[in-house]
Amino acid sequence: MTLFGHRVPMMSSLLVWCLLWELIGRLDLMFLVPPFTAVLAAMVELVQSRQFLAATAITLRSFAVGMALAIVVGVALGVLMGRFRAADRLLGMWVNLFVSAPLSALVPILMILFGLGDTTIIATVFMFAVWIIVLDTQAGVKHISGSLVEMSKSFGAKPRDVYLKILLWAALPEILAGIRLGMIRGVKGVVIGQLLVSVIGYGELFELYSRNFLMERFWALTILVFAFAILVSELVGAIEKRIEYYAGVRQ
């Protein structure tokens, strides 16, 4: 980016927005927008509080468990649907429906099914993340040319070898792309789930802060959650980059 003929670093645009926020906050136009510096101060306070640490632990755990389930089930289903036309016919419709459906609407049903606890959050993460993983895995497995599978068979591969040593690896770039997108959705799932359940984790904190008009804390928590979402997707993106080389050279 250039400004008045001078090169300015990318992050400086962020600085402009922070400054704007600070100004609006100082003007005291809306109680909803406290000054940015106040939010930062609240953030420092927040990350040291026991409440926050406990909520983080619960949130991370639900996220990790839900994602792990989504990855295992999503990859398995995706491989199945990529390999067998019948599985695709049976499940494809539902996967395509759910991948773009407003899943938040289903969280109340999960709450009835699993109660107002961790299980519902885990189920929400799973439900948000799993479909895109299925779709991407299926796409990856489908476009593998027959030649590697044929090669492994000619050297005596059993069906199990074909799956574990060829198909999963050949489809890995797509699977990872699916997992990355799934993780972003999973973060949404964990937040939306907790907000709707509103008695555990960050959901409880959000509820607490907004009800008591603790806007500094509210915004501090929001920024942290956003940062977490970005971090997660960057992390998987980095892993993806490392194996990018073979997406292009795959036969």
Partner: peptide
């Protein structure tokens, strides 16, 4: 003919 090597 197309080598069929595992790229990974």
């Amino acid at each position: 003919q197309d080598f069929a090597l595992m790229p990974w």
